[in-house]
Amino acid sequence: MTTKHWLNLGVVGLLALFVWGAGRWLDEYQVRLLNNVAVFITLAVSYNLINGVCGQLHLGPNAFITLGAYTAALLTMTPAEKAANFLITPLYWPLSQISLPFPLALLAGGLVAAGAGFLTGFPVFRVRGDYLAIVTLGFGEVVRVLANNLQGLTNGPLGLKGLYPCTNLWWSWGVAVATVALITALVNSGYGRALKAIRDDETAARAMGLNTFRHLLLAYILSAFFFGVGGGLLAHLITTISPSLFTFFLTFNLLIIIVVGGLGSTTGAVLAAAFFTLAGEWLRVVEEPLEVLGLHIPGIPGMRMVLFSLLLLLVIIYFRGGLLGRREFTWAGLTRFCSRMGRHDAS
């Protein structure tokens, strides 16, 4: 174990302490926010793998999140709850009888999403660029339409209600840490180097003997798996899911997060995910009636989105590569920064 590993372990330890403390002393609303932050970190970091590191404009994360959410939800609900939900069309056997513990359901959600990633990967990676964006966007819509219409599987537009709120801070942050650790390790390995090479010039990468299709498919499936797990977490956090929850708007939010964070930077994805989730709540203030300097401003619903758009504009104009560009947080970088600061103080 090198110093770097001990430092990483130390951070995980501190995080665990924080989660423990948060569960003990924070109120329900704050805990809910922290859960949201963790789930969006998981989703954004996985999205950054395919979109930022591989440079493929994948617009279908909502499809995989839907698959993960429904799979996990259908597996954790008890047969009685299922019967109570599926009033119009009964749920297909044997799903109607199965009930699994939460961790297994999460894993199943991830695996179903990864399976869908494997199947769709073949048509998706026959094309590149704008065409790839359209194919994946279409796939997201297909899944949403299926979720709306496969009554016997998803309960249609009514969705699934009354899920047990299994997602607690330990699960959400545990998954977030595992996702960040695995994806960072992969991106910093020879595989990550190959993925970045493909992003820079796929033709040259093929001329170097890299099977670019297999590399891209792997990144796509891996991100799909974590989308699925994240979807499962989200379902058991909100406890009510319906197809309208997983529209393209969700993908769009994730896209804003990774673009603002810096396409290709995992650190950026983590910071931006946390920032957007928290800012989205704090900015609720602007949608409520306000008294500013004796001036009465009536609450304008959707005002938050206007502010987000402004923020996005500013980032695009002043930070073209996102806030972090492709830089990453590293311990060595922190040491360099501190020693520079130290010299600065001394002089």
Binding site: R193, A197, D200, D201, T203, A205
Partner: peptide
């Protein structure tokens, strides 16, 4: 013919 390096690596 027109150099194709991995420009950002």
């Amino acid at each position: 013919q027109n150099i194709r390096l991995f420009g950002e690596l």
